[in-house]
């Protein structure tokens, strides 16, 4: 059985591996963080959040300060999907952001049907209001 963990990741409970949901690539053991099987890119935040004010003229420009924060981009090494971003202080070790308890996960899903399409959740619909 496989559990859909994020938009781009699933865990195969039988093999205990992280897998890419876009290309089915096996990323690595679910006993460790999925990031360990990813490619990482250290992105200058000004490339994503462009300066709105002229950087030649102003100290603050609407762009993050690249000396203060970087964007770590994690890519699936097989299909190049950007699985996660992490706004990080320069030099701060990447976070082990999702650390599932695999035996507990297996026990929980033993009582459930496998879910192959993500459950989206209810839409917010406009109220009909108070009518007479």
């Amino acid at each position: 059985m496989k559990v859909l963990m994020t938009e781009y990741l699933r865990i195969d409970l039988d093999t205990e591996q992280w897998e890419c949901r876009v290309c089915d690539h096996t990323i690595g053991t679910a006993a460790k963080g999925y990031k360990e099987g990813m490619l990482v890119y250290n992105r200058d935040p000004r490339e994503i959040h462009p300066p709105i004010l002229d950087p030649e003229k102003y100290r603050f420009t609407f762009s993050p300060d690249p000396e203060w924060v970087r964007i770590l981009e994690y890519y699936c090494p097989h299909c190049g999907t950007m699985v996660e971003t992490e706004y990080a202080i320069p030099g701060h070790p990447p976070l082990h952001d999702m650390e599932p308890d695999l035996p507990a996960l297996r026990a929980q899903w033993a009582k459930r049907e496998e879910v192959k399409e993500p459950v989206v959740g209810p839409a917010v619909v406009p109220d009909q209001g108070h009518n007479h």
């Binding site: 938009e7 781009y8 994503i48 959040h49 462009p50 699985v83 971003t85 706004y87």
Partner: peptide, 20 residues
Amino acid sequence: KIPPIQGLFGGYACGCYPLS
């Protein structure tokens, strides 16, 4: 100088917002 939020599942956070 640093965005006050994080993005989700490969999405980006916002940028920064100064006073002019």
